[in-house]
Design a protein around this nucleic acid. Structure first.
Length: 864
RNA sequence: GGGCGAUUGGCUCAGUGGUAGAGCGCUCGCUUCACACGCGAGAGGUCACUGGUUCGAACCCAGUAUCGCCCACCA
């Protein structure tokens, strides 16, 4: 922080409107800030002079939500504070438009669907009247073009909201997670990962969403409670004696044909005799071994379970560690594979299989139960249970596990050493609030595999590789063809690898492009690199990276935050930012998380119209970091009242006559007020330094109401000149100094109101948002001031008001005689503002009586 | 099952070792020359519960309860 901060002198002829108002301030000042480039990033500043923010790119295909207003306001308050502290703030804005949400919207909006096998049609136009039932198949490139067309509209709506709210972002620094820069950055980072051996392909059991027909990463899972039922199924121990059975209990009888073993705990005495022997699956009559593994829980079901390929992640563990065969029966569409598997050999068994072939998992379950009832291998009625089932967070059918070839990036899920390094990164990061780091640690410690980044989708960044085809047309996945860095970004479905020609695509001895795209987090995890100019603008990169802060919500610590740490650690061996500022959620008045599906979302624009941007920002800024906050119209009304009060108080102060000479301040009451303000400046600065904007606001607000209710009332008569010009000048100088300081304390929160007042009191066109944050030095004159002079005199004034209130009299009613009694010290403090108290209370005769050392301050007043 | 957070007046929330705080709402007043988009005054709480540490606990420690969230191998 070396940039000089400006503090222009207050105009002695301020332009104060007769009737100050909030109407129109948003349009007036957002326009002026844009014209003047108030928030434009000055890239002549060095890294030490810069405060850089890794702004969360909102998902533009979602609707505008008060939650957006909430968390983005927090970041903006920090940005404005840092800017006033003299930092050059790098505050870009991104749009997250890549990924499934946009795909779904485009399909419905234009009535199309993506078929990657189709060629690009440069002249394609979507139908005038989209038919969602008969979607037109189009090429990936056409589909992506439509995604881009639609997101442009969505992004405009977001930008309009952000500008209206007064976010101080630099609108020349924007990016989209699907734009060329983002594509190039994520492909380049991927190729670097590949070159270092951090990205690899693997054919492995993969969590699979049958609706979207794509692989899903661990981070995208969520558990949902679903009804299920235990079915008790008997496995014949020998082929000769069908009655000698071992019983398992399963919720997924439809996977019986995929059973490869039974498993029990090694120390389970009931099953120890069976270990090493085989049993036969009922109906399908397949011989499977009985094995032992510590993960089998003797308490669960009958204590012995069937292992299928694959019913759940435990099956995968058993399959891997016990080296069992693979016998999948669920296909990519979530249905039982039609072709009868080779391991089902007897004609009867094949007949049973044909009855479930082609069925969904749900139907297959019903039919399998029928079959087992017919063969008599099921015992008793199913026992209903509620149990957690894994879902893709955006899907609505349970995930299956299928074996596919996918791309992975190492994230510590398989290597203890890397995991430990990433845990250390989590400890190195400064979390706001601190306890959020536990979520990171929980997540990293619970990883059970590397990061699966390939997705079988269309609107995303393509994996930038091709594969050679051999003379039979089979791809060689082991040595992918890689583009040079200067070719990026590429789309391997239309671009041609070096050394090949376009007509060799898909031909024997030719090549094929990788059909997959990257996970949206594989791009989002690079937001600092995308916005900061990594490998694109080295000069910018050197001034902003590693960044200062990543603001984000707590539910995406495991995804966005963690994956960003992984990328920076692997690429640059550093943290991507030094601080993580975690915001809470907006809760509706029933304390449930607000969400679109619950139908309790309030549109933000309506709130801004009704209460003003500053009022809504006030509500947002009173939500403490990391704390879930109730949606509260009441707080917005209070914010509006505060903003209007600031306008009116400013009008009063400026109409008293501006005295810029600090040395004119010599009255004890004035010095007392400024001494309190000095302490407020100190505390608010400390609060901001620890990212506690809410505390800084509270401090400024509390002081402000004391300032208007007590100080201004006490000093009014003197400022008008009632006690002579010198005494008046002390008040006038103190008033204008206090106003200037308070406006700047409020500026991060109420940018429109404070800028409006700032413009009245300055003849140049300077902005408060480029003015210096208040310092203790400015208030040096009050360093020895005694805060209790104002405090005690204010209490005495309250006592006088109470007397009038009790008498149901007007506040301007004359008091013939008032007696203030208290400790000798308190009476002494009041005596220092005696004339002001007498004037403010319309007291003809004011008597001060020192009492005992524990006497409470009391007032007796006789009304005239 | 493991963990994190919360629990303060009717409501929304501050406070973090020394006599319970704010705003809203409520009650009662006031057309006070910055403000009726206002101003003043007032009522209202054994700080979830039980122990402990301490001269002293809303605050520190241990435990309990309720709520929210994160994580965990879904037989």
């Amino acid at each position: 922080m070396s940039a000089p901060t400006s503090l222009p002198a207050v105009s002695t002829s301020p332009k104060v409107p007769d009737k100050p108002s909030l109407d129109g301030v948003e349009a007036k000042w957002s326009g002026a800030w844009e014209d003047k480039g108030t928030y434009r990033f000055d890239r002549s500043k060095t890294r030490e002079q810069v405060f850089s923010i890794d702004t969360p790119p909102p998902t533009v295909s979602g609707s505008l939500h008060v939650g957006h207003v909430f968390s983005y306001t927090h970041t903006d308050c920090m940005a404005r504070y840092k800017r006033m502290r003299g930092f050059e703030v790098f505050y870009p804005m991104g749009w997250d438009d890549n990924g499934l949400p946009t795909e779904r919207r485009v399909q419905n909006y234009y009535g199309v669907r993506c078929d990657p096998s189709l060629p690009y049609d440069a002249d394609f136009e979507p139908p005038e009247k989209p038919d969602a039932k008969n979607q037109i198949p189009i090429s990936r490139r056409n589909f992506v073009e439509l995604c881009e067309r639609l997101t442009v509209e969505d992004e405009k709506a977001f930008e309009e909201l952000w500008r209206r709210m007064g976010l101080s972002v630099d609108w020349t620094q924007t990016y989209q997670t699907i734009d060329r820069n983002a594509q190039r950055t994520s492909q380049l980072a991927f190729l670097r990962n590949l070159a270092r051996g951090e990205a690899y392909q693997s054919e492995a059991p993969t969590l699979w969403d049958v609706t979207f027909r794509t692989a899903v990463a661990q981070a995208e899972l969520e558990d949902r409670e679903r009804e299920g039922a235990y079915h008790r199924i008997g496995f014949p121990v020998t082929s000769q004696d069908d009655a000698n059975r071992v019983f398992i209990e399963t919720t997924r009888p439809e996977l019986l044909a995929a059973c490869v073993a039974l498993v029990a705990h090694p120390e389970d005495e009931r099953y120890q005799p069976l270990f090493g022997s085989t049993v036969r699956t009922p109906a399908f009559d397949v011989e499977v071994p009985v094995v032992a593994h510590a993960l089998a829980d003797p308490e669960k079901g009958s204590g012995i379970a069937m292992i299928c390929t694959f019913g759940d992640l435990t099956d995968v563990t058993w399959w891997r560690e016990l080296q069992l065969p693979t016998r999948p029966i669920i296909g990519w569409d979530g249905r039982v594979i039609r072709e009868t598997p080779s391991w089902i050999q007897t004609p009867a068994a094949q007949g049973f299989y044909e009855r479930i072939a082609g069925a969904t998992a749900f139907t297959a379950k019903e039919r399998m139960v029928e079959i087992l009832n017919e063969t008599g291998h099921i015992e008793g009625e199913p026992k209903p249970i509620m149990h957690p089932v894994k879902f893709f967070e955006k899907g609505d059918k349970p995930l299956e596990i299928v074996t596919t070839r996918q791309w992975y990036i190492t994230n510590g899920g398989r290597e203890p050493e890397l995991r430990e390094q990433l845990l250390a990164r989590g400890r190195e990061l400064i979390w706001h609030p601190d306890h959020m780091k536990v979520r990171y640690e929980n997540w990293v410690e619970g990883l059970n595999g590397d990061w699966l980044i390939s997705r079988q989708r269309f609107f995303g960044v393509p994996l930038p590789v091709w594969y050679r085809l051999d003379s039979d047309g089979n791809p060689d996945y082991d040595t992918p063809l890689i583009p040079s860095e200067d070719q990026l970004p590429i789309d391997p479905s239309s671009d041609v690898p070096e050394g090949f020609t376009d007509d060799q695509r898909g031909k024997p001895n030719g090549y094929m492009g990788d059909p997959d795209v990257m996970d949206t987090w594989a791009t989002s995890s690079l937001s600092p690199q995308i916005a900061g100019g990594w490998e694109r603008d080295p000069d910018l990169w050197s001034r902003v990276y590693p960044m200062d802060v990543r603001p984000q919500a707590h539910e995406i610590i495991r995804t966005w935050l963690f994956s960003s740490v992984v990328r920076a650690h692997l690429e640059d061996d550093c943290l991507p930012w030094s601080n993580a500022a975690i915001s809470g959620w907006i809760l509706d008045p029933d304390r449930k998380k607000m969400s679109k599906s619950k139908g309790n979302v309030v549109t933000p624009m309506g709130l801004l119209d009704e209460y003003s941007s500053d009022a809504v920002r006030y509500w947002a800024a009173s939500g403490r970091p990391g704390t879930d906050t109730a949606f509260d119209i009441g707080q917005m009304k209070i914010g509006r009242r505060l903003a209007i009060k600031i306008l009116n108080a400013s009008k009063f102060v400026l109409s008293m006559g501006v005295v810029n000479d600090v040395s004119a301040i010599d009255q004890p009451l004035d010095l007392s007020m400024l001494a309190s303000l000095r302490e407020v400046v100190r505390l608010a600065t400390d609060a901001f330094e620890s990212y506690n904007y809410a505390r800084a606001l509270e401090l400024a607000e509390t002081f402000f109401w004391t300032f208007t209710d007590d100080y201004v009332e006490l000093v009014k008569e003197r400022a008008y000149g009632g006690q002579g010009e010198d005494a008046a000048d002390s008040a006038r100088a103190a008033l204008v100094l206090a106003l200037s300081v308070q406006l700047r304390l409020f500026a991060p929160f109420l940018p429109f109101t404070t800028e409006e007042v700032w413009s009245w009191m300055h003849d140049d066109d300077s902005s408060i948002h480029r003015a210096a944050w208040p310092t203790l030095d400015e208030l040096d004159i009050a360093a020895a001031g005694e805060p209790r002079v104002l405090e005690r005199t204010g209490q005495a004034l309250s006592g006088v008001r109470k007397a009038k209130s009790d008498a149901k009299a007007s506040m301007k009613a004359e008091v013939s005689e008032a007696t203030v009694e208290g400790t000798p010290a308190d009476v002494e403090f009041v005596s220092q503002a005696r004339a002001d108290l007498a004037a403010a209370g319309s007291i003809a005769e004011l008597i001060l009586v020192p009492g005992s050392d524990d006497a409470p301050l009391s007032v007796r007043a006789s009304l005239a």
